[in-house]
Design a protein around this nucleic acid. Structure first.
Lengths: 310, 310
DNA sequence: TCAAATGATGAGATTTTCTCAGCATTCTGC
DNA sequence: GCAGAATGCTGAGAAAATCTCATCATTTGA
């Protein structure tokens, strides 16, 4: 069993010794000089030895204080370094990112090379996961969330709104029931993400085809797989226009109707509240936010006609 | 400016890790398991990383926790050692003693060789000083106080009562006014310690000579110097019978009247309250107390006739 | 020489820490 | 396989620590 002095007072002792002044230490520690004085006194009483000589106004270490400071400073250094290493090694270039698989494959992956060109020293360790992260229990540094931004106790930066457009394989356009107007969808399979069936309802209503009953519907567990299903010609999916821009550009996917549903949800970059950002995190954050901006400004292929849904 | 984690929680973290159990750590730290759990949680939240995996009932360090523990343990070790070195290095053989000069010269010095024979490893560093010691500001380990034991916040061990007898140089006995009865003192100079003039008044009253007015009186600042003045034949001093026994035995001082005044004051061994004793302090304390006992039992030269004063 | 700055101190306010009670889970002994 | 003991988590309130404030004494510098 250890016999340790009041540890918090050591912090004040060290600061006071470093400044040779209680007042200066108090300022650094964001407390009053009185608090420092009390703490030092407590420590001295515990030790039974005075650490500072107070003959003049300037406090000065006694011989015992000098000796003690050496050890205390060394110990606090070690704790500080270990803590920094464990938490915010602000110079670290390794960033643990957690994003939804769909965002990862359709947005982040294709742009990774651009990031690496700009920040060759930063290493992104990417984890694909859905659901919220418990930042106090996970070593994930940052995550990209999709939702309406009502998460608590989290640092959060808006990236951009998500607009959904229907996408499908070009083969469907040439099939027996070509998609000429929204109502034509009734002959097809609508692919939706589980628990987000309402998106199709909203889109159909926005497109003036709220009355139709589609031939079939297919529930898929994630946006990524929904898009994959669309690519395979299984039906029409609602996908984020930006996330599918590459497939559209290459002709692997087509947007049968340029009607965009504003989901009122958005992508957010999130991380633990108050967390000091490492250089790697700063780089990723800056790049991510500016890259998102670029996308917004870029003309979307097939000239968009933005219509706000409800 | 430092960025340190909550330091007190580190103590709990270390104990918990050492025991692999919050409950065991709680027992060691004399708190509830709940307190430990809260503190660990606070630390983990600060760090943003979980230090223990709690899948099973036994808590187990995570990889991060393991890494952190190494540093924390090391740092706490250093603080503990430095603190021990500064305070109660219980194995230390060096003892800082503070005693009144009179006690030092007439009692301690003559017996030092006996102490050193018994405890050859213990080194006494003796400081002669009068007045009270602020044990929280002085590196004095122990002191011998003279008084009535009404000191506050101090650990205190009664040594023995102080009996005052008149002492003077043998030359005075052979002078023009030999001391045959107490009233003869009126022809002599009475040496007293400043602020303790009443001692002579009390003694004279006790000796049935309260009515006399001495020829002269000499104020001296300390008991040691008063005895020295008596040795030099400057007059008659009141001195502790034990402290002057050597001079009396050698004939350099004589006790003209064997009337002992009980001062109702005593010598006490004192030290900082709750202070754990080092081996050196224990040795000195044991020796001092038993040596005082020996003195009490020893027949005092010139067969004493103890009379209680008021 | 006087105002400003520093430190000490005691009392009360504030914040942190701890305990308690209740709950869930996991061992242990039968 | 089950009941009870042991362990850990959590929230609310109690207890303790820490901090601030007000005041004073000293010292420093203009």
């Amino acid at each position: 069993m250890r016999r340790l002095p009041p540890l918090n007072s050591l912090r004040m002792f060290e600061a006071s010794a470093r400044h040779s002044s209680f007042a200066a230490a108090a300022e650094e520690l964001a407390v009053t000089a009185s608090a420092v004085s009390h703490q030092i006194k407590t420590l001295e009483e515990y030790l039974g030895i005075s650490l500072f000589s107070r003959n003049r106004r300037k406090v000065e270490l006694t011989a015992a204080g000098e000796q003690y400071l050496t050890a205390v400073k060394h110990a606090l250094d070690e704790i500080e370094v270990a803590t920094q290493r464990l938490t915010a090694n602000l110079d670290t270039n390794v960033v643990n990112i957690s994003v939804a698989p769909n965002f990862l494959i359709r947005w982040l992956m294709p742009r990774m090379s651009k990031f690496q060109e700009l920040y060759p020293d930063v290493e992104l360790q990417i984890n694909a996961s859905m659901g919220l992260i418990d930042f106090s229990r996970s070593n994930t540094d940052m995550a990209v969330y999709f939702g309406n931004g009502d998460w608590e106790d989290i640092e959060m930066h808006f990236l951009r709104n998500v607009m959904l457009v229907p996408v499908c394989s070009p083969f469907l356009m040439r099939g027996p029931h070509p998609l000429r107007e929204p109502a034509d969808l009734r002959h097809h399979t609508l692919i939706y993400v589980s628990k987000r069936k309402y998106e199709w309802d909203n889109w159909l209503e926005l497109a003036g085809a709220g009355f139709i009953t589609p031939k079939n519907s297919l529930a898929i567990s994630s946006g990524q797989l929904a898009t994959a299903a669309a690519l395979d010609g299984l039906g029409i999916a609602l996908a984020d226009s930006t996330l599918t821009s590459r497939e559209v550009a290459s002709g692997r996917l087509v947007v049968p109707f340029d009607i965009k549903l504003d989901t009122h949800k958005a992508f957010y970059l999130v991380y633990r509240k108050h967390r000091p950002l490492t250089v790697g995190m700063k780089a990723f954050k800056e790049w991510l936010m500016s890259e998102m901006q670029v996308q917004d400004d870029d003309p979307v292929p097939a000239e968009p006609e933005v219509i706000l849904g409800k």
